[in-house]
Design a protein around this nucleic acid. Structure first.
Lengths: 209, 209
DNA sequence: GTAAAACTGTTGCATATGCAACAGAAAAAA
DNA sequence: TTTTTTCTGTTGCATATGCAACAGTTTTAC
């Protein structure tokens, strides 16, 4: 966002000109990829939405990441020795472009005309990912549910530059994203309404402060 | 770690050959930088250790990140519209190399012999940052203090490939890093000992599972 | 060396959060 | 359409966590 770099244009170019990529479509609910074996795969969302999900031993679901148009995910972003089973699931019919980090750095070099440009853009793309993750960490380090909710609303609100926001999740999923219990979160939402911090109409929230 | 890229060598080269960088020494406790105004600064730890810290309105301290030799931090990794005041503090006498992301991408291009190599390495460096942040998110999404502690110990243990680990923090700071109350964490540590999960000798912990 | 400051382990108490269960609403599937 | 599934809001209860306070220890500063 903050760097003058046209990501959409970039992805279009990538799709049409790099021989090392491939594109696949997924239906809602399908598993796009699992992070078990360590490949250095990078994936771009061309259409639709996807969630990066972890289930722990107690069956708790955590939405580690939520990806939409232009977002990037993949095993290359995770440590090799992760003992968590993560997988990415299509939330809506989705079109995903796959390629390997190594192919960008090495193999593609000879044939692909677009290659130099890709390499230049790569650090910008990964940098954007870093910013996304730091934003998420800001959220997760908040000590209680109220602060997590307010932080989340603030982020959406300042992104859209609007005091009224639309939650891009079901409330069930939002709880999994904030890493809190759903019923406790709903309870806290009620408190926020009582205390005059927010108004709530379905999946729309208006910040009153 | 996982890419065959020599970071130490890289930093040495960077320090000696790029005219756009500068290096400064800090004493323990000194503030290295604050993330208020938005510059696209990148900083490398050449010596010592540093913490990225946030204080919330209630005075709670959170250690957002902990950096040692070779680690990278800086405003460039944060969204422009962050309303949190973050700052980086030297934990031990530290030597820090500063440069601007824009200088790598643009201005340095003409004069600096090392520039091309720097650009190639840049995406590897930022990628390493992404992996570090995803590891941190795995930790923070754990639902309770016990799981956070065990995850943290696991990460240290598998990095050092040793069942006995040395906590690189004071326990006070570890609590701030895990985003939990110190006394609650100490209590949970006692429970982990009682339940036979760990043994504890000062700042050394042995995993018994 | 001595004084001051920070760290550690512990506890009682208040409360936020998790958990289980339920019914009505909404959405998806048939 | 009808049926099935998922989502939502709520509540009672158990408990994990936060908070405040304290004393003993260790570390830093003078």
């Amino acid at each position: 966002m903050q760097y003058n770099f046209n990501k959409t244009l970039f992805i279009e170019k990538l799709k049409s000109s790099c021989s090392k990529t491939h594109v696949r479509n997924f239906k809602k609910g399908e598993t796009i990829t699992t992070y078990i074996e360590k490949r250095n795969q990078i994936c771009f969302v061309l259409k639709g939405e996807a969630d990066l999900i972890r289930y722990d031993l107690n069956g708790n679901k955590t939405i580690i990441g939520h990806f939409t148009l232009g977002d990037v995910f993949g095993e290359v972003f995770y440590p090799a020795n992760t003992n968590n089973e993560l997988f990415v699931e299509a939330k809506k019919n989705a079109e995903i472009l796959f390629l390997l980090y190594d192919d960008i750095q090495e193999k593609c070099k000879k044939g692909c005309q677009f290659h130099e440009e890709l390499k230049e853009s790569l650090s910008d793309i990964i940098l954007e990912k870093v910013i996304e993750l730091n934003t998420r960490i800001e959220l997760l380090t908040k000590r209680n549910t109220r602060d997590k909710l307010l932080s989340y609303f603030d982020i959406l609100s300042s992104n859209r530059m609007n005091k009224t926001i639309t939650i891009p999740f079901s409330y069930t999923d939002l709880a999994d994203y904030l890493s809190v219990d759903r019923s406790a979160m709903t309870r806290e939402l009620s408190h926020l309404i009582e205390d005059g911090f927010i108004k709530k109409y379905g999946n729309k929230i208006t910040l009153l402060y």
